[in-house]
Design a protein around this nucleic acid. Structure first.
Lengths: 136, 136
DNA sequence: CAAACCTGTAACTATAATGGTTACAACGGG
DNA sequence: CCCGTTGTAACCATTATAGTTACAGGTTTG
């Protein structure tokens, strides 16, 4: 199972998008909604900030989205967190003296690429706004 | 990143499907091709056996597929290993007193279900035979 | 200015997953 | 019987994950 960071990120971004009173929107408050630690929240927000999805200012409560929810795809969020990392791991150094071992890595990469493309399409098709609509 | 078990399973099944001399096909030999430990191989084979993909007999070298490579989808292999497990984790117990927290789990499940379906289709569309063809 | 907030980040910890390893019981074939 | 094999339990090392403490530095308010 993949870790829960993607879930936490979507939760955080949803809160930022829907909370009108910015002074209320502290890492402590967000942590209370997500049910985790404020530092975990700030750490995740740091990642999303680096990816250009939001801004914040040291010392001041509140965060601002830099992308409209309707323009923020789940794929963009996913990539902000995981980078270009492969989804499935391939075992290291299979035996090159074996017909299977020699070509298995390359073959699996092809398989995983097609699987990943299918996921990508789904993530691209859904935006933060879609999530917000379902949270109503 | 997801663990490498799926990759290892496909590798093992490919070897079983392509090795004609069964007395050669020991867990030790397979481990040599995969580049891992014989026990890791036997452990994985135990899982695949429980799922009904192959047979073996204590004390005798060799394994036999119970499903023709052309009928063995990568989805079947994936499910043999991972069961019905969700792909993405969702964080526990978000705050029910919060509009977002209250409905985020349900919403994310919907999102992940659509993503998983897309993956499923890709895995269903490819068989072990397709993999074997690419290993040539 | 001082106190009370906040963010940003480093560092440490506990827990769990993963894969490798040793060990051994049980089986089969020469 | 003897040797090689499968099937498993048990243990270990490594790593990822998330939680936590601590603190530097910014902001606001009285």
């Amino acid at each position: 199972m993949v870790n829960s960071r993607f879930s936490v990120a979507i939760h955080i971004l949803s809160l930022i998008a829907t909370t009108s009173d910015k002074s209320q929107l502290t890492s402590d408050y967000i942590a209370g909604s997500v049910n985790t630690n404020p530092v975990v929240v700030r750490r995740m927000i740091g990642v999303l900030k680096k990816a250009g999805l939001l801004t914040s200012q040291t010392g001041i409560a509140g965060y601002d989205l830099l992308v409209e929810p309707k323009d923020l795809t789940l794929l963009a969020i996913y990539q902000a967190i995981n980078g270009p990392e492969q989804l499935f791991a391939i075992h290291d150094e299979p035996n090159p003296d074996c017909t299977v071992g020699r070509k298995i890595q390359c073959t699996l990469e092809g398989v995983y690429t097609s699987v990943w493309h299918a996921m990508e399409e789904q993530l691209q098709a859904q935006t933060l706004q879609d999530v917000l609509d379902q949270l109503r």
